[in-house]
């Protein structure tokens, strides 16, 4: 589903954010990308939906080679990738419901389907009672749910979430992770960047750990021991 080989990314002439990342995420997987702040997690995710272009290396997403993707094709790639942004990126002048409808309109959903699908997805994330609220009137957890609803309303093949539990307290964070798990169970490939190790430990999923732009470990459902923060793991990064 997502395959990176030797991805390099520079910001400016002498700052390298990613220093040769290779990984392979299969269809239907649930993967955490972890690592300390500044490790390059967000940059890695941005590569997948083409907000940033790699300087070197190759990325295949859903069979498409992103380095050869024409600019005009990027929107169509993105329609297959739902993204939950770290700062949500909701439109503050629109209500919750209109934010979802807008996302559907943007990608050319027939008018007759838009309202029904917006309803369905808002029910799925448990926000049916908040549809007329405006994003800034919602709690962090509720805004996160709207962001998730918008990301999945089009049934994308891939869901990307950047620090989805960032500013949330533990209980709400668990609810959000439950929601992502539900989406995963329906068959969506899910990639979550987080530095919240408590969550990672509880979820028992594949974990890719970045440090300073390098992939330092890639383990399947690791036990707690391997995931102690700051610990140098002995697990070798898998290639490809």
């Amino acid at each position: 589903m997502i395959r990176m080989s030797n991805i390099q990314k520079r910001y400016g002439p002498d700052f390298r954010a990613l220093k040769g990342i290779s990984l392979h995420i299969r269809r239907g997987e649930f993967v955490f990308v972890t690592g300390p702040s500044g490790a390059g997690k967000t940059t890695l995710l941005k590569m997948i939906y083409c907000e940033q272009k790699a300087d070197e290396g190759e990325i295949l997403v859903n069979g498409r080679n992103l380095s050869r993707l024409r600019r005009g094709s990027i929107p169509y790639l993105r329609r297959n990738i739902g993204v939950v942004f770290q700062d949500f990126k909701l439109i503050h002048s629109k209500s919750v419901f209109d934010n979802i409808v807008f996302a559907l309109r943007v990608i050319g959903t027939p008018r007759g389907d838009m309202k029904r699908r917006a309803w369905d997805v808002l029910r799925r994330v448990g926000l049916q009672h908040k549809i007329n609220s405006y994003p800034l009137c919602l709690s962090g957890g509720e805004q996160q749910r709207v962001a998730i609803a918008r990301a999945v309303v089009n049934d994308p093949a891939i869901l990307i979430a950047d620090e989805p539990t960032g500013n949330l307290d533990a209980a709400v964070a668990d609810e959000i992770m439950g929601l992502l798990e539900e989406i995963h169970v329906r068959g969506t490939t899910v990639v979550v960047a987080t530095h919240n190790m408590g969550i990672v430990r509880r979820m028992k999923k594949r974990v890719i750990r970045l440090e300073d732009g390098r992939c330092v470990s890639d383990t399947n459902a690791p036990d707690a021991f391997e995931l102690d923060e700051g610990e140098i793991t002995l697990v070798k990064p898998s290639v490809g």
């Binding site: 005009g72 929107p75 329609r79 990126k89 439109i91 002048s93 943007v106 990608i107 089009n154």
Partner: peptide
């Protein structure tokens, strides 16, 4: 402009 950036990121074409 923020709204435009969001539109771009959620799959709107430039013409839209």
């Amino acid at each position: 402009r923020d709204e435009l950036a969001v539109m771009r990121l959620i799959g709107a074409t430039n013409w839209f």
